[in-house]
């Protein structure tokens, strides 16, 4: 596969170099340069919001460092969790003395490394709490929702955590509201073509011509249903049927919708999907607030899309509308 790289081993670091060169509000920091943090530093007295994860999903994770979003983010290698030192460095970079919320996807490596980092930071008096992104409905049944993986919908949890922390809430409240936001996000993905890890000899999976895979993870982990390619409207319906069959207990009448490209799928096709999503949600009597359509959470050159529904309540809607600003997402009141 053709890639615009120099050496596979330099993939992450050179991309991060370019990211901060282009966006001076972000800096690279940490022992091994594997932390992206806000250039202005942690604000004293504000709860810090930190994330982390494997690389290859830009703008996720570290692209969302900015006002009203993340304060710092640790960066692993391609599809591998960040190492423990980067997690320690990121938490420290986000710490303004009021504690730090660790908000990351529910993956084994990420969990272990953030856990070890907090154990070590306990000795330094930095209080931390954890909320795990668990929005991928294809990764576990509703009865085991806590086992689900985090995919594109974690973006909504970032927004809520960042907003309530900016408003000056204490760590316990930031954690509780963010956990509630996460529990009200549902995502499902569809893959049309695979991606390839730099340095690997083959793509992470193969799909026969004319077939698609529903429920695929953002690392190319197999989905739940493999099926024939179908028109966009039919696919949107299929995905929405799954999402609407899995509502949070107290879902109201308002949702935010994220129609996301996994990398190679163009925005044109996302709008074709969104057009149908809008029709369907209108029929369901659901009002859409602040829709997002674009490449927000990708898997390098994987082709496909994901749809996320964020079931709002009054407070979450208000927080969603709060100002936020990073290179890949900004919200203005």
């Amino acid at each position: 596969m053709k890639k615009l790289i120099n050496r596979p081993g330099d993939y992450v670091d050179q991309a991060l170099d370019g990211l901060v060169a282009a966006h001076p509000a972000m800096i690279r920091t940490g022992t091994a340069g594997r932390v992206i943090a806000r250039a202005e530093g942690a604000r004293k007295g504000k709860v810090g919001v930190v994330s982390g994860g494997g690389f290859g999903h830009l703008p996720l994770f570290c692209g969302y460092v900015g006002q009203g979003l993340l304060d710092a983010c640790s960066v692993g290698n391609v599809f591998e969790g960040p190492n423990v030192q980067s997690c320690i460095d990121a938490i420290k970079a986000a710490d303004g003395g009021a504690g730090v919320l660790k908000l990351f996807g529910n993956y084994g490596g990420d969990r272990m490394n953030f856990e070890m980092a907090s154990e070590m930071l306990d000795f330094e008096g930095i209080e931390t709490t954890t909320v795990l992104g668990t929005d991928d409905i294809a990764s576990a049944a509703p009865e085991e929702a806590q086992k689900r993986r985090g995919v594109a919908g974690i973006l909504y949890a970032y927004k809520i955590a960042g907003a309530i922390a900016e408003r000056g809430a204490a760590l316990a409240e930031v954690t509780e509201v963010t956990a509630r936001a996460n529990a009200r996000v549902r995502t499902i993905g569809v893959a049309l073509a695979p991606c390839q890890v730099p340095g690997a000899e083959r793509p992470t999976f193969t799909l026969p011509e004319g077939e698609i895979e529903l429920g695929m993870g953002i690392h190319g982990e197999p989905g739940i249903w493999r099926t024939q390619m179908m028109p966009a409207d039919q696919l949107a319906d299929e995905m929405l049927n799954r999402l609407l069959a899995d509502l949070p207990a107290d879902a109201g009448g308002k949702v935010s919708v994220l129609v996301n490209s996994l990398g190679a799928t163009p925005v044109e096709e996302l709008f074709i999907l969104y057009r149908r999503v809008r029709e369907r949600l209108d029929q369901e009597g659901l009002q859409i607030v602040q829709p997002m359509i674009g490449p927000y959470v990708t898997s390098m050159e994987m082709a496909g899309a994901s749809i996320s529904l964020f079931h709002l309540d009054e407070q979450l809607e208000d927080l969603l509308r709060d100002p936020a600003d990073c290179p890949f997402w900004s919200v203005r009141r």
Partner: peptide, 22 residues
């Protein structure tokens, strides 16, 4: 390295060999 990447790609994300090599 590549053998383990392939084994991981069957149900996972295909990086086990590269990670272990590093």
């Amino acid at each position: 390295e590549q053998e383990l990447n392939q084994a991981d790609a069957v149900l996972g994300d295909g990086d086990t060999g590269g990670m272990l090599a590093r």
